[in-house]
Structures are given as C-alpha cells and as structure tokens.
C-alpha cells in the first residue's frame, strides 16, 4: 500500500517539477509548483512527518504561492519575455550536468547501507513534539528565523514600494493633467445632476 502511494506521489512530483521548468507561461509554472508541493506533502506524510506536511501546504501552497501568483499577475505578459530558448549546446550542457549530479547521488544512495527505519514514539512528528523541540532545543534558530523574516518583509516593502518610479515626460504630464481635469469636470456635472434629481424627488 505504502509503495503504491509512494510511486504515485513521486511520479506526480517529478511530472509537475518538469512542468515548472518547461512551461513558458509563469502562471502555469506556478500552478505546476503547487502540484509539486502537494505531492511532496504526501511523501512527507509517508515519512510520518505530519506537522511538516501540514506546514508545507499552509506555508508554501497557502502563503508563498499566493505571493507568487500576485506578482505574476502584477508583472503581466512582460514576464514571458525571458522565456526564449537557449542555444542547443547550453541546453545539453545544463541537462548533462544536472543528470550527472542526480545519477551520482542515486548510485551512492543505492550502494550505501542504511539502518532500518527507527521505531517511533507515539508522538513522532506531531505538532506537540515539534513545538516542544522548537521552543526548547532550537529556540535560538527559531528566533533568528523570525528576525530574518522580519528583515525580508522590510526589504520587500523597500524594493516594491520604495525607489523612484520612472519620471514622466512633459507631454505625459500634460496628458495626465488634462485627464484628471476632465474627470473632475465629469464628477462635478454628475453631482449637479444628482442634486437636481434629489430636489425634484422632494418636490414630487
């Protein structure tokens, strides 16, 4: 039973990872990454890591992917510009180098002797056990991660909202002013219309 779930989940994980890398449209890539994360969460559940699997879904699929999709929608079709193809020798070299790394690891891993799976305590991988370890033995790492996250949030705001946007040329400034003047005029006339309608309604 376990082995069936394992092969289904790992097949889906590999297929979706290939889709992430190969898709031209970043939107489709992001959705494929979502599938990759969910199938990896299944693999984590097979390893009895319930809390990490839940955190994987909540943190990655919930928070990080929403941020990705938001930025992809913000950037729009411009993000597809960079998806042009490489020279063939670059593609072959990259695939060859990566395949060598994978094959190397696989050969080593299947040649090595590992111990059997350890016998587990009843609370292995539960939020209680993880939380206890996080709040006692790994408190320093926990605090450092929270400081890093805070710094990253500040950096994200500074990069995204700060800085000086492109200066408008004089023609664009004039066009913008004309547009806002037109809008103000339209709003004023609408206010007048509303006022007349109200007073007519009261009269009747």
């Amino acid at each position: 039973m376990d082995i069936v779930v394992f092969f289904i989940a790992s097949g889906l994980a590999i297929a979706s990872a290939v889709a992430v890398v190969a898709q031209k449209n970043p939107f489709v890539s992001a959705l494929a990454l979502l599938g990759n994360l969910v199938s990896l969460a299944v693999l984590l559940l097979l390893l009895s890591a319930q809390f990490v699997a839940a955190a994987q879904i909540i943190v990655y699929a919930g928070a990080i992917m929403v941020m990705f999709l938001f930025v992809i929608a913000y950037v729009g079709p411009r993000s597809e510009i960079g998806a042009g193809e490489r020279k063939p020798w670059q593609v072959w070299l990259a695939v060859l180098a990566s395949a060598l790394i994978a094959i190397e690891v696989i050969v080593v891993v299947f040649g090595a002797t590992f111990g059997d799976w350890a016998d587990l305590d009843g609370d292995y991988g539960t939020p209680a056990a993880i939380g206890k370890a996080l709040m006692t033995d790994y408190l320093l790492a926990f605090e450092v991660v929270s400081v890093i996250l805070f710094m990253a949030a500040v950096a994200g705001v500074v990069f995204g909202a700060g800085g000086r946007p492109r200066r408008l040329s004089d023609d664009e400034v004039q066009a913008k002013e004309a547009e806002s003047a037109e809008q103000r005029r339209r709003e004023a006339s609408r206010a007048v219309l509303d006022a007349t309608r109200d007073s007519m309604g009261e009269g009747a």
Partner: peptide, 22 residues
C-alpha cells in the same frame, strides 16, 4: 533518489530559464 531527481530538475530550470520569476 526522488529527492536527487527533483533537485536536478530544479537545477536545469535555474540554469536554463531566463525569466527571474521562473
């Protein structure tokens, strides 16, 4: 082994793609 395969697929993407988002 699955982990190594996924890692190398991601590595191909980092090496070959040109869009920062991808």
């Amino acid at each position: 082994a699955i982990s190594a395969i996924l890692f190398s697929i991601g590595l191909v993407g980092v090496l070959l793609r040109r869009s920062p988002l991808t």
